[in-house]
């Protein structure tokens, strides 16, 4: 990994699209499906995860020479759990209602494989600056993906967006979208869109290559 020189902006950008944690890597599905029933819940969960990602990335990167290989997982989990606990208190201090809505899923950020994955695969091998950029990119990508799912589910499932009515009276809400199974439906719809765009991109690239090949020959 050290061989390839990646520019700092690329380190940030890759989490948004090319390596989007939800739509491409399909990581951290538990919060992505469970707490995305409204846009505000999705946003809050995304931001909390982003904060934990950033802090865990920074700490792991700073301590990367101090933590021996054998004790790395326990150290990472300990660091992640600490910041999750901090976020838990912070959200309670901001709003009890929000804390009630997110429920047990704040504590479950600890086992979000995205965070441990980035700590293990990236932060432990890079300097703090790059680790932070990577974490920020992944966090923003995660938040945006959750937000997209949340918007779709809230509009269809409750007929509202951020609690504001989107339709005139009498709109038939799709109860299923608010239920956990609706998370899978919304996720599948977005995956369909994302994969369709990616395939178009890939086809365009291939055509471009073919044409370049023809010119060369």
């Amino acid at each position: 990994m050290a061989l390839k020189q990646v520019s700092p902006t690329d380190e940030f950008i890759k989490g948004l699209w090319r390596e989007n944690p939800v739509f491409i890597q399909v990581l951290g599905m538990c919060p992505a499906l469970a707490v995305s029933n409204t846009a505000i819940n999705a946003l809050a969960m995304g931001l909390a995860t982003t904060f934990v990602l950033l802090m865990a990335g920074l700490s792991v990167s700073l301590l990367r020479n101090f933590i021996p290989r054998e004790a790395r997982i326990v150290s990472y989990i300990c660091i992640i759990a600490t910041f999750v606990t901090c976020v838990d208190y912070a959200i309670m201090a901001i709003s009890i209602e929000l804390h009630r809505a997110l429920g047990a899923f704040i504590a479950l950020i600890v086992v979000n494989c995205l965070i441990l994955g980035r700590s293990e695969a990236f932060a432990s091998k890079h300097n703090p600056g790059r680790a932070m950029l990577d974490a920020l990119g992944m966090g923003v990508g995660f938040t945006v993906a959750l937000f997209f799912i949340g918007v779709l589910r809230e509009i269809l499932g409750s007929g509202t967006l951020f609690g504001v009515d989107m339709f005139p009276d009498g709109f038939q809400t799709w109860t299923v979208m608010v239920l956990p199974s609706g998370g899978f439906f919304a996720m599948a719809m977005w995956l369909l869109v994302v994969n369709w765009i990616r395939q178009r991109e890939a086809n365009a690239e291939k055509e471009g290559d073919d044409r370049a090949g023809e010119v060369a020959s």
């Binding site: 038939q172 799709w174 109860t175 299923v176 979208m177 239920l179 199974s181």
Partner: peptide, 10 residues
């Protein structure tokens, strides 16, 4: 089953 989950009242 989809309808049952999506529109339980009707």
């Amino acid at each position: 089953a989809f309808l049952q989950a999506a529109f339980p009242q009707p």
